[in-house]
Design a protein around this nucleic acid. Structure first.
Lengths: 353, 353
DNA sequence: ATAATCAGTGCAAACGTTTGCATAATGTAA
DNA sequence: TTACATTATGCAAACGTTTGCACTGATTAT
């Protein structure tokens, strides 16, 4: 006795309709179809209409892989960021995606997780001609740049943002950290602060070094003493490190009457540590942060901070990248675009003076 | 007199070395090269070594477009999110990217910007066989799902997360919002709250409706009155809307002694509005939020909240998507994975009872 | 010694689209 | 009418890789 089973091959390849199918259907050549769909001027209007209608009817979907392969254009951009879930980067990516979308490009994202090794792996993947341009924010570990050299040889334009290679001739989008920090510190000074502390980021990273320099330059300009005891070095500007440094400031015999923090997280720490100790913010100590994180406009008192233009940075990066992709005569010169930041004044620095 | 210029065509196509180049160089056929590079068992060890060494030497980079084209496999996944710069989504994407990267897939990201029309456009783009799987969080406007149907016909597996189509048989990763809200409310009740308010999200969105239902169910179980005056409906759970609703609660003759908020932003609003009015948190009014945003563990008092497992949600979505892509016999059944949430108890609900 | 097996390699087609060039059909000017 | 320009379409190659099949020469089994 035998039992016959009726097997249903649900996975049978649903083969798509191709150009050729359409061609056969309409008794035209594949080339005519291709041109008609692309609104090529050489094709008569009637044929064009006919083809487009039939394509719609048969649910024709062009195989963009085949097209990319033939045209050697993928219309896609690769992005390497340390992590996506850092607010700053998510904003930048949003700016990139928005601009790229408008221009008909799509974006493929990779996280280096701040590991040099992973960053190197990713560059290898991206070189397989999957992307026409690459936008990068370096991992914190990155201290050599050989893995990026191949892109140049392959004619794939590279744009860096925020954390950019030092001493190299590259395209980059940055803000002027020095100037921004100077402005922030100056703001505290004009509000009457005389003894201004700084919570600093990792000094091996150029941007945090610049912020520190900007702070010192402002002090110098207004002839205020620089006191090393009023500088709290941190490794990664975390909330917890901010608490440690602010607590250290609190132990000084002479309290600082202003604190410029290299980011908003540590500004929150400083705010909370000082308030808990009974120090009045901003009247006894004013506080300025950096980056305009969402929390800065929510925590009380709201924190004065620097708008670091993350979204615009992304949009500019995409714009530059696409220009470099599409420019016939690939420019030899590299470009650095520096975005104007903006001081957002809120309660945390509004002392009556 | 003539001046001769030496023109340097810097844009001359730097043509890559191809398989054929390698083949010619080594007097082997392209197929042998291809197999050797893929460590095909049919090729002798000596030849394999030889080829790989030469490939390295000539800086051969496989053209993955050609490979994708031939193999009909792109190893890439498309993601559609409302916006990248919402912390929740950036976490989910991080989870997706991490898992996908480990499996050798890459991810291409699109933002619907919460617009149905843009979502529809994106689905069209994604159907061009650029991706093998698609992961989606619906736009807030989306109330019809026809634009997703083509994916099924094309055999491209679709996985939804968080905001998923209602009444449709789809793959999805969600948390149990009902149960989570129930737990959160129950927590307030066991802390002694008798008059519990709720700041609710848009009730046309399933997840916020479920949270509201969970809140009501907990009240019912513990025989507490449901008071419509203690429910603040919002459109998008923004910080500002939270302030409006919390202020409304404050005007009641009988203040709520507990507030369950459908997200952490509105929990912050409630916290601040009540504190400013001199209400002691948590002793007079306890507060619980939802989603475990970074701010909830930073603001003082720290906010009790629900960990909504965003990262894990992404990882699970990627895992399911890849399984569906690689499974030969494309399963007919669709799957819904519900992740366990977790109540994170912090100061804002720790009243002495 | 013959047949069968097997390891190692090559041939050639295929994937679906695009595009330079050729061709056919029509219109226009001399 | 002839020559030429114009318009609309088709032909066929190309993009670089992968893969089924065929082939060769060597080894093993009968």
């Amino acid at each position: 006795m035998y039992i016959y089973a009726n097997v249903c091959y649900s996975f049978m390849k649903k083969s798509r309709t191709t150009l050729k199918d359409l061609a056969k259907e309409l008794n035209l050549s594949a080339s005519t179809i291709s041109r008609a769909l692309g609104n090529h001027p050489g094709i008569s209007e009637t044929t064009t209409k006919l083809v487009q209608q039939k394509a719609e009817e048969l649910g024709f979907i062009p195989n963009s892989i085949a097209s990319s392969f033939r045209k050697k254009k993928t219309r896609s951009i690769g992005i390497i960021v340390p992590r996506i879930d850092i607010y700053f980067h998510s904003l930048v990516i949003s700016g990139i995606e928005d601009f790229a979308y408008k221009e008909g490009y799509n974006v493929t994202i990779f996280q280096s997780k701040d590991l040099l090794k992973r960053e190197q792996e990713i560059t290898k993947i991206l070189q397989n001609k999957m992307v026409e341009g690459v936008i990068v924010c370096l991992s914190i570990e990155t201290d050599k740049y050989d893995h990026f050299k191949k892109f140049k040889r392959l004619g794939i334009p590279l744009v860096f943002y925020d954390r950019v290679p030092t001493g190299l001739d590259v395209n980059s989008i940055v803000i002027n950290d020095f100037e921004s920090a100077f402005t922030a510190t100056e703001h505290l000074i004009t509000k009457g602060c005389k003894r201004i502390a700084h919570i600093a980021g990792n000094q091996s990273t150029a941007i945090f070094k610049s912020r520190f320099e900007g702070y010192k330059a402002a002090l110098k300009k207004y002839k205020l003493n620089f006191d090393a005891n009023l500088v709290g070095q941190t490794h990664n500007l975390s909330y917890e490190e901010g608490i440690i440094q602010a607590s250290r400031f609190l132990k000084q015999t002479d309290l600082p009457d202003g604190i410029f923090c290299a980011n908003d997280y540590t500004a929150v720490s400083a705010l909370q540590v000082f308030m808990k100790a009974g120090v009045k913010i901003p009247d006894e100590t004013a506080i300025v942060g950096f980056s305009n994180y969402p929390i800065s406009r929510v925590i009380e008192p709201h924190i004065t901070t620097i708008n670091d233009r993350a979204y615009e940075m992304g949009a500019e990066a995409a714009k530059l990248s696409i220009r470099l992709i599409e420019d016939e005569e690939e420019s030899i010169k590299s470009e650095t675009i520096s975005l104007k930041t903006e001081l957002i004044v809120r309660e945390s620095s509004l002392k009556n003076c």
